[in-house]
């Protein structure tokens, strides 16, 4: 196996590089250093911002491969996998990491099958095994109840997707040098049987996936109109609004807000669980959050098991006082 180098898949939207790319550079840099190898950021798109590509170098990449074409402007599984396969075949990387995003989690399994190699989903930890140099991929399974460490001993590249927000973005070192290579995608790679005809942007400023802070409500919110009680907290914390299954099934919030087994898995820096009892299904979607704050009237609620701070009380009493206090703290801070 003469494959060499660590690759990360950078993602862009509208030609601007997304934050997940910088998080992957943190992961990739550590692995590349341990392997004494170069770190390459690969990105597909169209008219990608030059400064953003250079920023990938400044944040730790030794080389950027930016493959561009009109057909690569938005993620489409076939052209993206064809282009990535072409680059993997040409450069033969040893490790390939992507974000566990809607694009990464679709693209990587396609490429793993086509490249005849292993892929580990949703990793929270990546390391290099001493001696063998194999990639050790650690991920939660069974709703976060166990952790498994997985490796791909005989196939290359070793592939993994990494949960967004599971690491900090790499720090920018202005003036750091590297090579930015812009490539034109060959038209033969761009065939797609899926066509993107439209995009409906969600009304919220933050989706659950890219928020540092999530304010989640459970059945304790009692009715949809009570959401206005927590809205100021969402704004004050620049947070995304999440919900337990109960809240979505009752129609108080739409499905994209749902956190848990049949909704989204999130790991923000800070998670507020307000009136969330903490069913095992809900915990499965949020227990890897860095810090958890729970407010619930029931002192025995399961949510307190995974909380760093628990307030036994009514969210309608606690939240307004908290909002007031945060405003004061902001003014003085």
């Amino acid at each position: 196996m003469d494959n060499k180098g660590v690759w990360i898949l950078a993602e862009q939207s509208g030609g601007r590089i997304l934050r997940i790319s910088h998080e992957l550079l943190t992961r990739g840099r550590t692995l590349a250093d341990k392997r004494a190898a170069d770190l390459t950021a690969v990105v597909f798109g169209n008219n990608i911002n030059e400064g953003d590509l250079n920023e990938l170098i400044e944040r730790g990449a030794d080389r950027v491969l930016a493959m561009e074409a009109a057909g690569l402007e938005h993620f489409l599984p076939e052209p993206y996998s064809a282009c990535l396969m072409k680059l993997i075949g040409e450069y033969r990387p040893e490790i390939m990491i992507a974000g566990a995003t809607s694009a990464g989690r679709t693209l990587m399994p396609l490429v793993a099958v086509k490249a005849t190699t292993g892929l580990t989903a949703d990793c929270t930890g990546l390391d290099i095994e001493e001696g063998t140099g194999n990639l050790l991929q650690t991920r939660p399974a069974i709703g976060g109840n166990i952790m498994a460490t997985i490796k791909t001993p005989r196939h290359r590249p070793q592939m993994a997707t990494v949960r967004p927000h599971s690491t900090k973005p790499a720090i920018r070192a202005p003036g750091r040098k590297g090579q930015v290579v812009r490539l034109k995608a060959d038209p033969s790679l761009l065939a797609s049987r899926v066509k993107r005809v439209d995009f409906v942007k969600s009304a919220e400023e933050h989706g659950l996936a890219d928020a540092d802070v999530i304010v989640a409500v459970g059945r304790g919110i009692k009715k949809g109109e009570n959401l206005k009680v927590v809205q100021p907290l969402v704004s004050a914390m620049d947070a995304a609004l999440g919900a337990s299954r109960d809240v979505v099934d009752r129609g108080w919030l739409s499905y994209p807000h749902q956190i848990g087994l049949s909704g989204k898995t999130v790991s923000p820096k800070l998670y507020f669980a307000l009136g969330v009892s903490g069913s095992i299904q809900h915990l499965a979607g949020m227990q890897t959050s860095e810090t958890v704050v729970a407010v619930n009237t029931d002192p025995e609620a399961q949510i307190f098991r995974v909380a760093d701070v628990g307030i036994v009380g009514n969210l309608f009493d606690v939240v307004p006082v908290l909002i007031e206090k945060l405003k004061q703290a902001k003014k003085t801070g």
Binding site: K195, F199, A209
Partner: peptide, 12 residues
């Protein structure tokens, strides 16, 4: 369903 909304796709 993607991170910031919905893509409308025609799939052969």
């Amino acid at each position: 369903l993607v991170e910031d909304g919905y893509e409308i796709l025609d799939v052969a």
